[in-house]
Amino acid sequence: MHNGKKDILLHLYGEATDAEELRSLLRDEELRREHAALSEAKFRLDHLKRERPDPVIMDRILAAAAGEQGLPSSTDRKDRPAVARSARMRKVMLPALTIAAAILFGVAVGWFSSQPGTAQVDEPAVATAPDDIVPPESLYRFVPPQPVTPASTQDPRLAWDDSAPLMDMHRRIESMRPEGMLDWGEQAVPLESLPGSGSRSLQLTGSNKN
């Protein structure tokens, strides 16, 4: 910076006190304009009202100086942000994760429902059997359990299982069932007591007709 301008500033702030030097500086037109401009700004700054800290801050400082209030150590101050960060994590991250999980769940449900296999399973039930739709009020009505048709009354034969040997075998099995009533877990009975034990096809162990 030009020495004249620097000296003008020092005079303006009272850090140079040689009045004769100032007079000689102000004989220069440019320096005189500079002095006037800087003086105007300085005048405004000089009349700014000064601010003070809040009284409660002063009270805390004086209490700390008197030893009434423990001063936070430097290590305590270093720990404080970590606590703040974890609190912020709880405050911000948990709701965000919850929302993200809900969105993922919704996307997953939407994806499964849009799969061809699942969609085709649901559609016929709605489209082809509208009469089977249960009215809402029936949901609150007691429906007695329907009697289950005994399996023995149904014809166990398959539609294509109608050849003569199979039909014959089926009749023989059916004729044995009502008298024998044997099943897994029941007590063993001698073979002689079984129906047809007198036929030629069955004979006692150790007996030899020949």
Partner: peptide
């Protein structure tokens, strides 16, 4: 100190201009 004075001078000029 020259830098400090220079900054002060520019600050005063700029303040006056802004005002």
């Amino acid at each position: 100190i020259n830098t400090a004075l220079g900054r002060m001078r520019y600050a005063l000029i700029n303040l006056r201009r802004m005002m």
